[in-house]
């Protein structure tokens, strides 16, 4: 059982992250107007949602079977749930990016490239700080704990960042060639 201080700190952090995300979303919406996706993008986003949902179901089934079948609990509940959500969201985002359906046609990917870069840097700093701090343990009672999440976030955002960078470069080259 976690201490009340930990629970209070965790939910305070969560609320701050949600408020910051909401403020950024409102600023972007005010600047560019509401996101507009065309018919091809809507179709591909629907497909990406389907694959992300299937990945989440497969992850939950495998995790459940592993625990019931072998009794192996590799991570605590919060960590394994968060990893499942991250995995599913990453599948959705990467499929959308690779099909040019992540950004609405009135949005610019450059801002998000910078934002993802900042998120990678912040989480990498937290992860390295935790790694060098002797008081922080990544494993409790043989299970991975929430301290490992900063590295999970780095891996996920790195995958998204690379996909976005490749796609942005490809789109730029394609746009240059499109004028005959």
């Amino acid at each position: 059982m976690n201490s009340p201080h930990f629970v209070l700190g965790f939910f305070t952090g969560l609320i701050i992250v949600l408020i910051v995300a909401l403020v950024i979303a409102l600023i972007v919406k005010k600047k560019n107007g509401p996101a507009k996706y065309d018919e091809r993008q809507e179709l591909l986003r629907g497909r990406a949602f389907k694959y992300a949902f299937l990945v989440l179901i497969a992850y939950l089934c495998l995790n459940g079977l592993l625990q019931v079948g072998t009794g192996l609990e590799w991570a605590d509940l919060m960590t394994s749930s968060f990893i499942g959500i991250c995995l599913s969201v990453t599948v959705f985002v990467v499929i959308c990016i690779m099909n040019d359906a992540y950004f609405a046609f009135n949005q610019k990917p450059k801002f998000y490239l910078v934002m993802f870069g900042v998120l990678i840097a912040v989480n990498l700093t937290i992860g390295i700080f935790n790694l060098t701090n002797e008081d922080v343990r990544f494993v409790t009672d043989g299970k991975l704990n929430f301290h490992v999440l900063s590295f999970i976030v780095v891996v996920i955002f790195l995958a998204v960042f690379i996909a976005l960078a490749i796609k942005t470069l490809m789109a730029k080259r394609q746009a240059d060639r499109s004028r005959l």
Binding site: E39, R40, F105, S178
Partner: peptide, 8 residues
Amino acid sequence: GVSRQTIN
């Protein structure tokens, strides 16, 4: 009123 990628 669509994205350039859709035209492509």
